[in-house]
Lab assay of single mutants.
Amino acid sequence: GSPGIQSFLPPGWEMRIAPNGRPFFIDHNTKTTTWEDPRLK
């Protein structure tokens, strides 16, 4: 199987799917959430 997208996120980050189907990202380091992919910064 191919590695999940989770493995490509920075340490402490998690990806979830919102009720509307959009992915969002949780930064457990700062306890914040964002719509922006942290890998694109």
Rank of each mutant, 00 (worst) to 15 (best):
H28M: 08
R22L: 09
P38V: 03
E36H: 14
P38L: 01
G21L: 03
D37Y: 07
I26W: 06
W13Y: 03
R39A: 05
G1E: 11
D37V: 05
I17A: 04
G1H: 12
S2K: 13
E14K: 04
S2Q: 14
P19N: 09
S2N: 13
F24W: 09
S7L: 12
P38W: 01
I5R: 12
T33C: 15
R16L: 08
T30Y: 05
T33Q: 10
P3V: 12
P3T: 14
A18V: 03
E14F: 05
D27T: 00
T32M: 10
F24G: 00
K31V: 05
K31S: 10
S2M: 13
N20H: 05
S2L: 13
R22N: 06
E14A: 06
D27S: 03
D37I: 04
K41T: 15
R16A: 07
R16S: 06
P19Q: 09
T32G: 04
W13K: 00
E36W: 14
G4Q: 13
A18S: 10
G21M: 04
D37C: 06
H28D: 03
T33E: 07
R16D: 03
G21H: 05
W35G: 02
T33F: 14
R22D: 07
H28V: 07
L40W: 11
P23W: 14
S2P: 14
T33L: 13
I5M: 13
I17D: 01
M15L: 07
E14P: 00
F25A: 00
E14R: 03
R39V: 05
F25I: 00
S7M: 12
P19F: 10
A18R: 05
F25V: 00
Q6I: 12
L9N: 01
F25K: 00
P3N: 13
P19T: 09
I17G: 01
H28Q: 06
L9S: 01
E36K: 12
N20A: 02
N29E: 07
D27F: 06
R39S: 07
P10K: 07
L40A: 11
D37S: 04
D27A: 01
F25D: 00
T32L: 08
S7E: 14
P23V: 14
W13D: 00
K31H: 13
D27E: 04
N20I: 02
I5V: 12
P19G: 08
P23G: 04
P38I: 04
F24P: 00
